[in-house]
Amino acid sequence: MTVTVKDKTELFSPQICAEIDRWIAKYPAEWKQSAVMGALMIVQDDNGGWLTTELMDRVADYLEMPPIAVYEVATFYSMYELKPVGKHKICVCTNVSCMTNKSDLIVEHLEKKLGISFGEVTEDGRFSMKEVECLGACGGAPMMQIGKQYYENLTPEIVDAILEGLE
């Protein structure tokens, strides 16, 4: 198979390239592939929270990896999204410590308020909901993550206030 060597700077914006390069620099020179998780996260954030096949192919080109190796990573880890998500991705933990602290009420409240369930996006594209496994904040159960932020000790009222505070 002939590989066309592209000018890598054309694959992403200079800023994205610089961010990916920061990850590449952390690993041995012959292990660019180690930067794939960081690169996918950067590219995903830049694309409204999800990855297209084209973006994954570009990451593959940038890191000189076979595309399939990038797809394997993107499909294996739960934080990569292969379908559009809301501007605010609401990740609610329902594992044991949260469950026994009534995470089901938080889920119900969100469902009613937003009119969506897990795996769905609101019509205006502002919110999506995702059920997640233990996020390691059980002392603040029930909890959820929106974007990069953890929110703990939730009640329906607190959830309302949090959502109102989002852009």
């Binding site: 180690s34 880890y77 990569y80």
Partner: peptide
């Protein structure tokens, strides 16, 4: 010393 960030896999 560097950090590596995971991707959500127990």
């Amino acid at each position: 010393l560097h950090t590596h960030l995971g991707g959500g896999a127990y």
